[in-house]
Structure formats: C-alpha cells, structure tokens
Design a protein around this nucleic acid. Structure first.
Length: 573
RNA sequence: CGGGGUGUAGCGCAGCCUGGUAGCGCACCUGCAUGGGGUGCAGGUGGUCGCAGGUUCAAAUCCUGCCUCCCCGACCA
C-alpha cells in the first residue's frame, strides 16, 4: 500500500467530547468517525485493524473446532416471544415493524435464532456436539453510549453457540473455548485476566469474563493479591465474619436523630462508627410485597447478588418513600429491622454485629445497642454486599484488591434454559427426546481494538502490537520531492518487502519529515525505515521500532531490514 | 429517564451579557521560500451561527418551543 493512495485523516487536536485515550486516539488517527450517538464508521485504516482482530478470532475459533455461519441481524419477534425475552430484554432491544405490521428486532444476541436452526436441523445425538460461531453486527440500545466504540450501540461481535447431550460434553467445549480465548488475547498481545462472573440477562449456570486490564475500564474486578482467585465484583462472594458474635453489653435504647438521612449523618450524630450501624433498604419481593435488605453501614448492597436471592424480585426494585412509610412507619433514613412486619434478609457482616445502631422505624429516631436474638429475631442471612478492597478472598487466598477491567469476552454454560424454552430436542441413544445442554461464547471484536489502544499508547499516539497493526512496517523517504535517489531507494525497499510477504506501506505523500514522523507515530505502525540521502551516503538505513526510544542505523540491505523487523539489530558503536 | 452543560467552517474555539458588515487557530487550496521532528511569508476556498416561531427598522446575540450531542446520576435510607 502507498499512503498517497490510502486516505487517512489525522488531526493534531483532540476532539472535545472524547474522554478516554483510546477514543481520542481512534478519532485523531482517523480509525473511526462518529455518525450518531453510539454509531461509528470504521474508516479504512481502522478497518484494517478490525479485520486483523477478526482474522485472529476466526482462526482460533476454527482451530478450537467451532464452525462459522452467518445469521441475519434482523430477527422476527416470534422467536423472542418463545424465549420470553421479547418483553424481558426491555428497551435495550431495538424493535421495528415491517410493511405487513410484523414485529422484528435488530438482534442484540442470537440464542433464539441459533436454537431455531438447531431444532430444525439437528435430530440425533449423533450430530452433537456442535459449536457454531459468527462474526456479526449487533445492536443494543444502550442507555448511555460512551467512550467511542468501547460502549457503542452498534458493534461487531463474535458469538458462538454450542449444543451437547450432557454436561460433560458442554464442559469440554467450554474449556476449549476458554483456551481459544486465552490464545486469542495472548496472540493479540493484551494484558488480560479471566474472572468469575454473574450470568446477567443471558442466564445460565456458570460463566467467566475476559477482561483487558485498564484504569479506564468500566468494570471493577476483585483479584486475590497472592492467588488465583479473580471475580467481577458483581459476582465476588464475601465471607461470613469468623468466630462468634460478641456478647451484648448494654440494653437497647431509642435515641433522637433529627434530620439524619444518611449513615454518615447518623454515625456522626451518635458518635458510632458506620461499621456499627445498619443500613436498611426496602425492595419488592417476588410476591409483590416489600421486604427489607440489611447491610452494614459502611457496605454497599450488591444489586446482582440481591436480585439472585430467591425472595427478591429481579431486577431489584426499590419501594418509594411513601410506600416505605406506609409499611414500615418511617421514611428513608430511619428504617431498621426491629419490629418490621416483612421478611428481613441480612448480609453476613451485618448479622455478625452486636450492640449496633439502626433506624427505629419512626422518623428522626434510631435505636442503639441493638442485638440479634435479643431485641429482634435471629436474622435470615445471605451474601448481599459488594466486596471491598482488602476483604478476604472467598477461596482463602488472602485479601483481594480491586482493579479495573474492560470486558472483551464472556463465556457461559447455559444448561437447558434456552433449549427448553425454544423446544430444541434431539433423540438420544435410547430413542428418547432430550433437550441439549447449551453454551455460548462472545467476544466484542470492536471493543478489543479500543481496549488494546488503552494499553498500547504513549504521548505520541498508538503503539500497535505487531499482531493487529494496520501495517507492520512503513518505508519513509526523506525529502522525496527533492531527492529522487531517496525516493527511488524507498520504492525499491518497499517493493522488496512486499515480495517477502511483509505488510509494508510506503509513505510517498511527500510530507515534510516532522509532519510525516508525527503522523506515522500517531497511527502507530510498529516499524519505521527512514531512507534519506544522509544515511544512504554512509551505506545505511535508519530503523526505529515504534516503542523504542531511539532510531538506529542498519546496513542498507534487505537482509538487514528483515533482521531488524525480527528485532535483530546490529550493535551500535 | 432525572440533573447540568453544549450547539457558530472538517476539527478546536471566541463573539452573545450591552442587537447593527460573522471572526481566530488548525486543516484545506495557490504561489514563493524552506527541507531530518507538526517550517515561514503572502494570498485564498469554505458558515441559511442546531431547527421552528416570536420581539425589533435590524437577531449568532433578546423571548418561547423543539432537537442534538456531551458530562454526571439513575435505588445505598
């Protein structure tokens, strides 16, 4: 490729609305252009990168035994009504109607469609297991798209769906996908971590996420400092406090706490640490009646854990203040578990307290020196809170630290949830109908590009890893306009690299050197060979790796260039 | 969806308060000079000032409505 023939538009200035490095650089380097909120065009340079990621994903999926197909992005409503997700997915799904008034959606995912095809085509256990994948555009109408292609509404996803006669077969494919994903992210060259995850809206039993570690990541991960344990904080279990509860020391007492609406205010007013206070939230139960969730004052309720509790309605729905007053006798800020006429679910840590403070269920009043089993019944205990930095890891591997990550992959064991809902059956060896086990496996292909830039950039621009760079090496003549000798030498080297099968590009734009260098660094090409009269005079070329501090002279031979591309550089005097 | 901001040339912004010829930087085009780190000088192209309505002799500017985009929040009592 010659850059004079390849439209790239770079900018010196950073667009005002780009917040994170990858978004800024993708715009500045001209990889993407925004069309509308959460909608981006991939410009030629960006597309080359995207296609390289795709190629790696495709190769590794195929190597791991998955077979590619392509399903429509527009899907009929009937399939989603069968699975129950036409309404459950909510406004995240973009719905539309055709000229015959039939309902469709732009597919946010493809479990329904693949189940439909499998129930048509797969009749016998002999055809299983099977693992289909596609690389295809999805649309999810995100509440708030942000960070460029990191959280866009339309995005490219690799999704795979496997079907099995039994759990052992599913586990085998799940592990094969886990290994394939590991290879994919290792090949791309990003620093990533596999974490345990909640299954979220997709559902199912077991799942793990692949996160690219980056400070700008939207997800918080709990990682054992000295061990293997790692989990999304949404799913990270907390341990019950060790040992028995301390013995109560004083009688329960009601005290005035006027105008105290938050734990902080109550804690300051009473001179009692937040960890000795209880925080009480009223939420809707599955039976449409309110129930109370209680955590320690310094802890936060974890929505995902709460929603997973059998008594709590999913999604977690807070009762409003007037309803709280009607059923508990007090407004927000003065609620507590004592004397409440509703189920009370208490987090481990809150259940381990003695002599604690909590709302008195009377406005402006709290109770102090409250004790479980004495002043109110022994609580029903659950894990409700979000894990904090320094908490023990649930596997006993020491304290966790909280790091941030960008979710680029997610693998699930779905069990029979969809095959039952969609009535997918095959005949087993005994001739009986059975619902297959199912797994699904996703990679956010467009997001991988952005996540990679978050890790691979410096103050000059993008520093592509070789694996997904749009071009591997650029041949850059100095003053090609004036020096036909430099221009000629550059052309010849470029042609020679091409015939070696190298993804080379010639910068024949006739730019001034400063502009050219700044541009090439911004777009992040891993290797640069500068050809100029000055170096030619001494029989040399100048080589610089994008991530190296200094350029070095190499002999003016193809072999020396090829060696340099392999990282084999001559010793410098 | 709630709150805050924003909208003026492809990008970044000023002008608006106090109504009166639409500006600056970057980018782009032309010429000359320059030629190893975003070069200099000169000239130039490009804008129904988000949309609609209103006030006024006159609206980018004041008023009303709508829209866009961005940020924060979206149950933590």
């Amino acid at each position: 490729m010659r850059l004079s023939q390849f439209p790239i538009t770079t900018t010196k200035e950073t667009p005002a609305d780009a917040e994170i490095v990858s978004h800024q650089l993708m715009l500045r380097a001209g990889l993407i252009r925004r069309l509308s909120s959460g909608l981006f065009s991939w410009m030629p340079l960006g597309l080359r990168v995207l296609q390289r990621v795709e190629a790696i994903v495709r190769e590794e999926m195929t190597r791991a035994g998955a077979v590619e197909l392509l399903m429509p992005s527009i899907q009929p409503a009937e399939l989603w009504e069968e699975s129950g997700r036409w309404t459950k997915m909510g406004p995240q799904m973009l719905k539309m109607r055709d000229r015959h008034d039939r309902d469709f959606c732009y597919g946010p995912t493809h479990e329904e469609v693949i189940c439909h095809h499998v129930r048509q085509d797969v009749k016998s256990y002999k055809q299983l297991p099977v693992n289909y994948f596609q690389i295809q555009t999805k649309f999810r109408d995100e509440i708030r798209p942000r960070f460029g292609v990191m959280r866009s509404r339309e995005f490219l996803m690799k999704d795979a769906y496997s079907f099995h006669m039994d759990a052992a077969s599913l586990e085998e494919t799940y592990q094969a996908m886990r290994a394939a994903y590991t290879r994919i992210f290792e090949r791309i060259g990003v620093d990533f971590r596999i974490v345990q995850a909640d299954s979220g809206d997709i559902g199912g039993s077991r799942s793990e996420e692949f996160h690219v570690l980056a400070a700008s990541g939207e997800d918080a991960l709990a990682v054992a400092r000295d061990g293997q344990y790692a989990a999304n904080v949404e799913a990270a279990a907390t341990l019950p406090a060790p040992g028995p509860r301390p013995t109560p020391t004083a009688a329960m007492q009601q005290v005035e706490t006027p105008h105290c609406k938050t734990i902080e205010q109550v804690s300051n007013h009473l001179g009692i640490a937040a960890q000795q206070c209880l925080k009480t939230l009223l939420v809707m139960g599955c039976n449409d009646k309110p129930l109370a969730l209680v955590v320690r004052g310094d802890h936060a309720i974890n929505d995902v854990k709460a929603a997973n509790h059998p008594l709590v309605r999913d999604p977690v729905t807070l009762v409003d203040e007037s309803a709280a007053r009607a059923c508990a006798g007090a407004g927000f800020g003065s609620l507590g578990p004592v004397g409440l006429d509703m189920p009370v679910i208490v987090d481990h840590a809150a259940a381990a307290l003695s002599d604690f403070a909590c709302g008195a269920n009377a406005d402006g009043m709290h109770l102090i020196n409250v004790n479980w089993g004495r002043d109110l019944p022994e609580p029903q205990v659950a894990d409700l809170r979000t894990i904090l930095d320094g908490d023990p890891s649930p596997t006993g591997e020491g304290p966790v630290q909280i790091v941030r990550g960008i979710e680029v992959g997610h693998i699930f064991q779905l069990g029979r949830k969809y095959t039952e809902a969609m009535n997918v059956t095959v005949l087993d060896a005994d001739g009986r109908e059975a619902h297959p086990e199912m797994g699904c496996y996703g990679i956010g292909v467009t997001r991988v590009v952005a996540a990679c830039i978050e890790q691979c950039a410096d103050d000059k621009g993008i520093v592509w890893p070789e694996s997904i760079a749009p071009f591997s090496v650029v041949v850059a003549p100095i003053n090609a306009k004036k020096s036909e000798r430099a221009a000629q030498a550059a052309r010849e080297l470029y042609e020679a690299l091409l015939s070696e099968g190298i993804n080379a590009v010639l910068d024949d734009r006739n730019l001034r050197p400063g502009v050219m260098f700044a541009d090439l660094e911004l777009i992040g090409i891993p290797h640069r060979i500068v050809v100029g009269d000055r170096t030619l005079d001494r029989g040399a070329l100048e080589y610089k790796a994008r991530d190296a501090a200094e350029a070095v002279d190499i002999p003016n031979t193809l072999d020396a260039v090829l060696a340099a591309l392999r990282g084999d550089l001559p010793d410098q005097a």
